[in-house]
Simulated scan of single mutants.
Amino acid sequence: MTTPPIRLVLVDDHRMFRTGVKAELAEVSAAASGLRSVEFAGEAPDVDTAVAVVREQRPDVVLLDVHLPGGRGNGGVDVLHGCAGAQAASGEPVRFLALSVSDAAEDVIAVIRAGARGYVTKTISGTDLLTAIRRVADGDAVFSPRLAGFVLDAFGAAAGEIAEVDEELDRLSAREREVMRLIARGYQYKEVAKELFISVKTVETHVSSVLRKLQLSNRHELTAWAMGRRLL
Rank of each mutant, 00 (worst) to 15 (best):
P5A: 02
I6N: 00
D12M: 03
H14M: 10
R15L: 13
M16G: 05
M16Q: 13
F17Y: 12
R18M: 02
T19M: 15
V21G: 04
K22E: 15
A23P: 07
A23K: 15
E24V: 15
L25F: 09
A26I: 02
A26P: 02
G34W: 11
L35Q: 14
R36I: 04
S37C: 06
S37Y: 05
V38C: 07
E39I: 07
E39L: 13
F40Y: 04
G42W: 01
A44F: 02
A44P: 01
P45G: 13
P45C: 05
V47L: 06
T49H: 01
T49D: 07
V51D: 09
V53C: 05
V54L: 06
P59F: 05
V62A: 00
L63I: 03
V66K: 07
H67F: 13
L68Q: 14
L68A: 10
G70H: 07
G70S: 12
G71D: 13
R72V: 04
G76S: 10
G76Y: 11
V77D: 04
V77R: 02
D78R: 05
H81D: 15
G82E: 15
C83Q: 09
G85S: 08
A86F: 08
A88Y: 00
A89W: 03
G91R: 07
E92Y: 03
V94H: 00
F96C: 03
L97F: 07
L97K: 08
L97R: 09
L97G: 03
A98R: 02
A98V: 15
V101G: 14
D103R: 03
D103A: 11
A105Q: 15
E106P: 04
V108H: 00
I109L: 14
V111I: 15
R113N: 15
R113S: 11
G115E: 04
A116W: 02
T123G: 14
L129Q: 09
L129V: 07
R134M: 06
R134C: 04
R134D: 10
R135T: 01
A137V: 04
V142A: 01
F143S: 03
P145L: 03
R146W: 06
R146E: 08
A148F: 00
G149W: 07
D153Q: 03
A154K: 01
A154R: 00
F155P: 00
A158D: 14
A159L: 10
A159C: 04
I162E: 12
V165N: 10
V165T: 14
E167S: 08
E168L: 11
D170F: 07
D170M: 13
R171G: 11
L172T: 09
S173D: 15
S173I: 03
R177P: 03
R177M: 05
V179H: 01
I183T: 14
I183G: 07
A184H: 00
R185V: 02
G186I: 13
Y189T: 11
K190C: 06
E195Q: 11
S199I: 12
T202S: 12
V203C: 09
E204V: 15
T205G: 05
V207T: 14
R212S: 13
L214Y: 08
L214D: 09
L214Q: 07
L216I: 12
N218A: 09
H220I: 06
E221K: 09
L222S: 01
T223F: 09
W225E: 09
A226Q: 09
R229T: 08
L232N: 00
